[in-house]
Amino acid sequence: MNTETTPAPDFGLSIDQCWMLLDTEVVGRIALIVDAHPEIFPVNFALERRSIVFRTAGGTKLWAAMTAKPVAFEIDGYDVHEQQAWSVVARGEAELIESQQEKDAVDALLLEPWQPGDKDYYLRLSPKALTGRRFKVNNPDLWTTRLSDPRRASFE
């Protein structure tokens, strides 16, 4: 009897694949420590020089990004045609962009805040770790899966 098992396929993404997926999205989530507990904030972002940049107002998000180290950033998605889900996580420290030249470079990427109000602070996350994974999703049970489940699209 053969007791060897075939190892599961490696669904880990390369760093280049992670950057390519990051470049396909415009909204992610930044995870910060606020008052000794984790908080997650949605942010629209752009990529600039292999870093993630976003704008914010003064307040909790800015304070936590500058004082709580490290921070994490995450995006995920689903490819209907391939029936695969994916996730990318960047970890590192956020830094305030103070140079007008660097702010102008970010503005040239058309990074415009979605939420009304002044978002005068520009932050950069240059990942010290960038990981991602992709995996095939289970086929949905069409009788019990919610109508909003994106997996249904490949069967309808």
Rank of each mutant, 00 (worst) to 15 (best):
D149K: 09
G59H: 02
A46Y: 01
V106I: 15
E4A: 14
V88H: 05
I33C: 06
T67H: 15
A85Q: 10
S148T: 10
A85F: 09
E156Q: 13
V27P: 01
N2T: 15
E156S: 08
L125E: 04
E82G: 09
L130K: 00
L13Q: 08
S126I: 14
K103N: 06
K119T: 02
D107W: 13
V106C: 08
V53T: 00
D16C: 10
L111I: 04
F135T: 12
S51H: 01
T56H: 05
Q115M: 12
T5C: 07
H37G: 11
D23H: 10
P113V: 02
K136E: 15
I40F: 07
V106M: 06
P42L: 08
F135S: 11
S126M: 15
T131W: 05
F41L: 13
K119M: 03
S154A: 14
G117C: 02
W19T: 04
N138W: 10
R134S: 15
E4D: 14
R29G: 03
H37M: 13
L47S: 00
M66N: 14
I33M: 04
V106E: 09
D79G: 06
C18M: 02
P116L: 03
D104E: 13
L96M: 15
P113W: 02
S51Q: 01
L142W: 03
P113I: 03
L21I: 03
A90C: 08
E95P: 08
T60E: 11
R91E: 15
E112C: 13
R134M: 14
C18E: 02
E112N: 12
P38H: 03
V53W: 01
R151M: 11
L142I: 04
Q100G: 11
M20K: 12
Q100N: 14
W63T: 14
G117N: 01
A8G: 03
M1V: 15
E74N: 03
Q101P: 04
A72Y: 03
V43N: 00
R91T: 12
A129H: 09
F41Q: 10
N139K: 12
E112P: 09
P9R: 10
L96K: 14
Q115R: 11
S51W: 00
V88Y: 07
Y78L: 08
R55L: 05
A68L: 04
W19A: 06
T131A: 07
K128P: 04
P127L: 08
E98R: 15
C18N: 03
E93Q: 09
T60L: 13
F73S: 01
A90V: 07
S87E: 11
L47P: 00
T145R: 13
L110W: 08
F41P: 05
R151N: 06
K119G: 00
R133V: 15
M66I: 13
T6I: 15
L47D: 01
L22R: 01
P150V: 02
S148N: 13
L62C: 09
M1R: 12
F135I: 06
K103H: 09
W114S: 05
I15V: 14
A90P: 04
A85V: 10
P113K: 00
D149P: 06
A105Q: 08
L110F: 11
L32M: 04
P9G: 02
E156K: 10
Q84K: 14
T24M: 12
K136F: 09
L32C: 09
W63A: 13
D16K: 15
K61S: 05
R29D: 03
K136H: 07
L62D: 06
L21R: 07
F41Y: 15
V27E: 05
A108D: 13
N138Y: 12
T144W: 13
